[in-house]
Every structure is written in structure tokens, then in C-alpha cells.
């Protein structure tokens, strides 16, 4: 995505510019072709076929916007979108806050820092499927957390998110954050370590408190780190699928369905490719709607400045 603009190449004549670094360009041809054919080509193909009535096999019987009309009148899709919005919003904020707080705590030169770092990062080494299963067991009311607390004597303790349609998405959220915040912590920690010691000294001289220094001085300086973290979290949110399949299977009822699962179920279980393509096109649209203004601000702004 980054555009490398070499100042010397501006002065060189046009024709030779194309043949500059010939070997490097030659070597990147396979990747360029892959990107064009697989990503761009595949995306265009999907968008085009979302306007057809394809069932099990792709066919070109055009139906206009019928698939999209059906999509937006489908309960399963509306529930999926709502769930993704709740999960996305909470996961974005909580992962950042928890990740940064843990990193800041570790940065205070505590003892056994590497041990804590390893513990916090461990969940990230587990796949979403394992995470989902583990949390399914932890949140199971008959053997998990609820029965443990009850066995300690708090008999009325009630915590059963996975069987309650209203809060099941928060059961998923717990598992998602548990899995993801360790990595964000590591990225944040690396960012904090990159801050010059002199900044801290200067803040101390000026008599600014530790927390205030973090909020007002350090966090603005860590902007690139936050951008990296945001991109990582956001891509994790939009592809949320395996966690749901492993932990709840979309249930109870349809209450923990997500858009990626809608695409898979419609394409393969309902054998309705057109509907699945329409749903994935909508997912692409939502990513593009967020990505384009952001990319414009991020990269367009820098050129001007």
C-alpha cells in the first residue's frame, strides 16, 4: 500500500524509469499476477455473479438486485450485521485499552517481565478453534465457571452467556479478547520501548504525572503503532468465523451468527451461490467504505504535509 517515491527517479527520463531495477521488477511479476488474477479477478468475478441466480453451480441468469433485496430482508443477515457491529465496536476498544494497559504495566520495569509477557502472549499461539472450544467449556454452566463459583458457596451465581440469546455475543467477545489482546500488548510494548528516555525525563522535570504523561505525550507519539494495532484488530473482526463455529455454532437459535458464516452457509449448505456472493460483496463494500476515507487521510494527508 505504501508508495515509495525515490527523489532521484524524478529527474531521470521517462522510458528508462520503467526498466530501472529490471531484476526486481521481473521477480515481482508472479506476485503482481497473483494479486491481479486471484484477488482483483476473484473479487470482480464474485461481484458480477452476485447479480445472477446461481444455485449450486455458477450460472449467468441475471436477476438484477434480487439477491441484495433478499439479503437485506433476511433475519439471519440482519442479526449477523448487528452481531458484527457489537463485537467489532467492543473488541476494537477493549483490545486496545487492555493491550495498552498491560504494556504500560510491563513497561514500569517490573520483575519477571518476560514471564508475564510470555503468559499474556500465550493465548495468541492458540487457534480460534481451540480458543472457542476452551471457552465453550469454561462458560458451560454445568462444568465451567458457573458451577465452580457455585461450589465455593455462592449458590445463586448465574453466568451462562452461551445459552442466553441476548448476551451470547459477549461470550464470544470474552474469548476473542482473551486471544487477541496479548499480541496487541506486545506491539504496544515495542512502541513504548521506542520512546526516548529523555521524553520521560523532560516530563518529570515539567512535573507532569505518570498517567498524564502516557495520555498526553506518549500515546500521540505512538500513532504509527496504534495504526498497526488497529489494522490487525480490524482484520480480525471482519473475518470472525472460526471462533463462532467452534464456540457456539451460531446458536442459540441464530443469535450469534456473523456475516462470514452467512456467506459460507448460503454458498455451501443452502447451495445458493448467488446469495452467498451478494453477502460477500456487501462485506467488501463495508470494508471499502471504512478503508477509503482512512487511507485517504493517512496517505493523502502525509503527501501534502
Amino acid at each position: 500500500m505504501t508508495v515509495v517515491s525515490d527523489p532521484t527517479s524524478q529527474s531521470v527520463k521517462r522510458p528508462s524509469r520503467l526498466f530501472k531495477n529490471k531484476m526486481a521488477k521481473l521477480a515481482s511479476i508472479p506476485m503482481i499476477l497473483t494479486a491481479l488474477v486471484v484477488f482483483v479477478g476473484g473479487t470482480l468475478w464474485t461481484v458480477v455473479y452476485s447479480f445472477t441466480g446461481s444455485r449450486m453451480l455458477p450460472k449467468t441468469n441475471w436477476v438484477g438486485f434480487d439477491q441484495y433485496e433478499r439479503l437485506w430482508s433476511s433475519d439471519r443477515w440482519i442479526i449477523s450485521i448487528k452481531n458484527l457491529a457489537i463485537y467489532g465496536f467492543c473488541s476494537m476498544i477493549l483490545t486496545l485499552v487492555i493491550g495498552f494497559t498491560l504494556a504500560a504495566c510491563l513497561d514500569r520495569k517490573i520483575r519477571f517481565e518476560s514471564a508475564f509477557r510470555t503468559i499474556f502472549l500465550y493465548p495468541f499461539a492458540l487457534s480460534f478453534v481451540v480458543t472457542g472450544l476452551a471457552w465453550q467449556w469454561i462458560l458451560n454452566p454445568d462444568f465451567g465457571l458457573q458451577s465452580l463459583v457455585r461450589s465455593w458457596g455462592w449458590g445463586s451465581f448465574n453466568f451462562d452467556p452461551l445459552n442466553n440469546p441476548d448476551i451470547v455475543i459477549f461470550g464470544l467477545l470474552i474469548a476473542g479478547i482473551w486471544q487477541g489482546s496479548g499480541l496487541i500488548m506486545c506491539i504496544m510494548l515495542a512502541g513504548l520501548r521506542g520512546i526516548d528516555e529523555d521524553i520521560w525525563k523532560a516530563a518529570k522535570v515539567d512535573g507532569i504525572g505518570t498517567i498524564k504523561t502516557y495520555l498526553v505525550v506518549i500515546i500521540p507519539m505512538m500513532r504509527p503503532v496504534f495504526v498497526t494495532a488497529l489494522v490487525l484488530i480490524a482484520s480480525g473482526i471482519i473475518k470472525l468465523y472460526d471462533l463462532v463455529v467452534a464456540q457456539t455454532g451460531g446458536g442459540p437459535g441464530l443469535s450469534s451468527e456473523v456475516p462470514a458464516k452467512y456467506v459460507i452457509e448460503l454458498m455451501f449448505r443452502a447451495q445458493n451461490l448467488g446469495q452467498g456472493f451478494a453477502a460477500s460483496t456487501m462485506m467488501l463494500c463495508s470494508v471499502v467504505v471504512i478503508l477509503i476515507p482512512w487511507a485517504y487521510l493517512e496517505f493523502g494527508g502525509r503527501k501534502r504535509g
Binding site: 439471519r76 440469546p165 437459535g253 441464530l254 448460503l266 449448505r269 443452502a270
Partner: peptide
């Protein structure tokens, strides 16, 4: 029924029984 219709019927029942 086609598989497509069946999934819709199953979805309805899943929603009905769980809620």
C-alpha cells in the same frame, strides 16, 4: 424443498425454539 428453502425453514425453527 430445495436446500435453500430448507435452510430458511431450519433458521426459522432455530430462532423460534431458542427465543
Amino acid at each position: 424443498f430445495s436446500q435453500d428453502t430448507q435452510l430458511q425453514l431450519e433458521d426459522l425453527q432455530a430462532q423460534f425454539w431458542a427465543g
